[in-house]
Simulated assay, not measured.
Amino acid sequence: MQRQRVIIRTIGVATAVALAATACGPQKTEPAGSAAAVSSSPTAGSSPEASPSTDNKPGEASASPSASSSASASASASPSASASPSVKQLMANGDENEQVRELQARLRQLKLMSVAPTGFYGSKTTAAVKSFQSKNGLNGTGGVDEATWKKIQGASKKPTADELRPSTVNEVDAPDPRCMQGRVMCISKESRTLAWMIDGKVVSTMDVRFGSENTPTREGVFNVGWKAKEWTSTLYHTPMPYAMFFSGGQAVHFSADFAARGYNGASHGCVNVRDKGKLSALFDQVQVGDKVVVYW
């Protein structure tokens, strides 16, 4: 059946086709790694497990009972010899891995986070960890050392698969300052939401998902270059209804795969929306030239 493509754009057909050559489709699996794949997202790889840190306070290392000769030698030692080692962090701001996802699910159980787990350790996770630390007599660093992790594990239960990757609607993140003026699709990677905003006011919101580590969704400030109510990726041959292209072949579009599989999948760089009705209404409102902000 011949597919009718309706394209709303301000550029010529040849340019539109050239841009669409990088259009993305859903990824069934996330490949292990590609030499050509370069991630622009501020992620840190999976952090190695840190060894248990001591609870010694400064000076305690030389305070243990010993022979008089040893005590004398300790007394004459340089101050650095008695200083305790720095506390090693298991997880901290900027990390992205499955342990962070578990941390976020546990913090959600404790009512310290309202957004769904993303696996990325950002500002909301840092604030939630600080809150937990202050309530439990721990050093409020916002990072997770072994003492903090053990306390969180003791106060919560092992998350279920649904808790780690819920299909419920996500809470909208605080808008990036760059979203506060004009007509903007304000897209948060941390809360996995898109907020359609006009002059600083949220008009509508919807859940979104992004590309994998190997095919990341670009971050920054963009503009809608052209729109296509019906479009099919020329690279991946998958439908991209209600596509609004903002960075080369990357677009905001409806994804049937996202609607069916949720966050168990990923795009090839596009911003997938799973609520077709909401996106249809948004598509009618967004104009070519409107701003798009993608941020953590």
Rank of each mutant, 00 (worst) to 15 (best):
R3I: 06
G12L: 10
A16E: 12
A18D: 06
A21F: 15
K28G: 15
A32S: 12
A37V: 08
P48C: 14
A50L: 11
T54W: 11
N56V: 05
P58V: 12
P65C: 13
A67P: 09
A83K: 15
S84C: 14
S84M: 03
V87C: 06
M91F: 13
E98F: 09
R106M: 10
L110A: 08
S114G: 11
F120I: 10
K124V: 03
T126A: 13
A127P: 07
A147P: 03
K151L: 05
K151D: 11
A161E: 05
E163L: 12
L164S: 03
T168E: 12
T168Y: 04
P177Q: 11
V184W: 06
K189D: 05
E190L: 08
M197T: 06
D199K: 09
K201A: 05
K201I: 07
V202Y: 14
S204A: 15
V208P: 01
R209K: 14
P216I: 02
V221C: 03
W226T: 02
E230I: 09
Y236I: 02
T238W: 01
P241E: 00
M244E: 01
M244I: 01
Y263E: 08
N272L: 02
G277I: 10
S280I: 06
A281Q: 05
D290M: 09
V294P: 02
